[in-house]
Design a protein around this nucleic acid. Sequence first.
DNA 1: AAAATTTATCGTAATATTGCAATAAAAAAA
DNA 2: TTTTTTTATTGCAATATTACGATAAATTTT
Lengths: 111, 111
Amino acid sequence: MGASKSAHFTETQNNLANIAKALAHPARIAILEHLIKVNACVCGDLVDELPLAQPTVSQHLKELKLAGLIKGEIEGNSICYCIDETVWLKYQTVLQGFFGSYQIQKTGCCS
Amino acid sequence: MGASKSAHFTETQNNLANIAKALAHPARIAILEHLIKVNACVCGDLVDELPLAQPTVSQHLKELKLAGLIKGEIEGNSICYCIDETVWLKYQTVLQGFFGSYQIQKTGCCS
DNA sequence: AAAATTTATCGTAATATTGCAATAAAAAAA
DNA sequence: TTTTTTTATTGCAATATTACGATAAATTTT
């Protein structure tokens, strides 16, 4: 077979994995970084900014949109993208919770 | 073609994407959660804990090891795994830095 | 030493992701 | 209206990931 037995895992586990998956490509990190940098949300600029063809950028935008991290708004004949604050903060909290759940142990078996 | 033009992105971008990739599967999240829960690092228990065959678990462990998130230590004829504190804290910091770099704007274009 | 236990690796099949050319869709500009 | 501009979608090829049976490797137990 192959690929994802997501049904066998908890919702929390799938949730975290999906957040990670949205960030698991340098192009998507680059897109988010650029959106953060230019504050006012740009769009076609991303194609110039990235070493990828327009359809590829569009596809990455689609995935980020699907994950909820960004939102787009029609503005003339172009589309303005920006970070979705609410989701961003939510994911930040989820990841902080996960990483914070590990307390350093003095008595681990791996010395 | 298809798949990863990682050479065209910055080291920081690839770094972040790789951290995310290591977390981008519910099984690996489950493994990490279990390692956190049982503190003293278990190993064959993971196969019982997860809805996956032994080779599949072994493969996920390999990826987590490759990412640096966990380390294994031979103990008798079994292997004891646990979180690598140093890397864990480093990744936590990297992710915090990324999520923290976004400052909520009152003047975004997407209202 | 032989059998049992435990984990890793190999080989292979199924599926998912990535990338882009071609093209469609929608709005602005001419 | 026709052309241009901008983004999305389709179709397809290349690659990566996931999963597991079979098997190897290493150690412990008998």
